[in-house]
């Protein structure tokens, strides 16, 4: 079929539009990356936009050599892993139980969980609870409170209800399997893609959140990477503090060092991003249809 000129023009317009928007999403990122691996002089004389100049990794060496940054990194890794494991455990337990239609009281508990999505007590009541439980300034405060997520639980329950064939489980029950065995041997293996998605929801969420750390953590060794980064890069009056904080011995441009800090916290996400992206998209799709 011959295409009309207006159709071709429309195509050009659309491709350009999407292309430019994609570049806009990428450019801020590439700029910071380029600054972080450029020489101080080139950055100070404003020669670096998208292409690094005088390639040099000193800023990264400074960041990697700073023990408090590295401690924050490993602490973040630790709480992310622990949080994801606990979150998945709670989600699987709840979703499996609520997906069994014969369970009495599932309706009530389901509503109870749903309520938590729409109403929260707020910052201060949370804070009072955390201090009553003696959780302030402990790693547990970054792991326990957010581990229960009604949203994730509902996604998994919907999947287990709709996509795991009931007949399989009935057959297993006739063979004498109890609920635990049905869960571990039948339902979980069939739910692997959704489980991967939810685990990533938990992990990326934990990695990126710094709000609760800001509220509940005041001791430096327990600060996760995002909070550390906030204090170094964003906090007002940090203009001269980065180089002091990370103890740069050789004079380094503030901008280069800041960029390296930003990249240091971003690179873990960017490395895993291409692999996890499709799982995320899947999760959004399942989440959109809740029954």
């Amino acid at each position: 079929m011959k295409r009309s000129i207006s159709d071709i023009l429309a195509d050009v317009f659309i491709y350009l539009f999407i292309g430019i928007l994609s570049l806009i999403c990428l450019i801020p990122f590439i700029h910071v990356l380029s600054v972080s691996i450029s020489g101080n002089g080139a950055v100070m004389s404003n020669e670096v936009f998208l292409i690094p100049k005088d390639l040099n990794l000193d800023a990264y060496k400074t960041v990697l050599g700073d023990s408090s940054m590295m401690r924050s990194l490993w602490f973040s890794v630790f709480i992310t892993v622990a949080f994801t494991a606990l979150g998945m455990f709670l989600t699987i337990c709840g979703a499996f139980a609520l997906s069994r239609k014969r369970l009495k009281g599932r309706r009530v508990v389901g509503v109870l969980f749903l309520v938590t999505m729409y109403f929260s007590a707020g910052t201060i009541p949370d804070y009072i609870l955390m201090s009553a439980l003696n959780l302030i300034n402990t790693p547990a405060v970054l792991i326990l409170p957010l581990a229960f997520s009604a949203y994730n639980l509902i996604i998994l329950r919907t999947f287990m209800q709709n996509s795991v064939p009931q007949s399989l489980e009935e057959a297993a029950a006739i063979d004498g399997c109890n609920d635990f065995i049905v869960l571990v041997r039948i339902v979980l293996p069939l739910s692997v893609p959704v489980l991967a998605t939810l685990a990533l929801f938990y992990a990326v969420g934990r990695w990126n959140t710094f709000q609760d750390a800001l509220y509940f953590i005041t001791k430096s060794p327990l600060k996760p990477l995002q909070l550390k980064l906030y204090e170094l890069v964003n906090a007002a009056g940090s203009q001269a503090s980065v180089s002091q904080e990370v103890g740069a011995e050789n004079m380094q441009a503030e901008e280069v060092l800041k960029s390296a800090c930003i990249m240091f916290a971003t690179i873990p996400i960017v490395i895993v991003y291409p692999f996890i992206q499709k799982y995320f998209v899947k999760g959004v799709m399942i989440g959109a249809v809740k029954e």
Binding site: S22, P28, S259
Partner: peptide
């Protein structure tokens, strides 16, 4: 383009603010 357009969603606000302030 979809991969690139989704990317900012995966960055924390600390990082986004840091990038844009710069």
């Amino acid at each position: 383009t979809q991969t690139v357009l989704y990317l900012p969603h995966f960055l924390s606000w600390v990082i986004i603010a840091g990038i844009f302030y710069q």
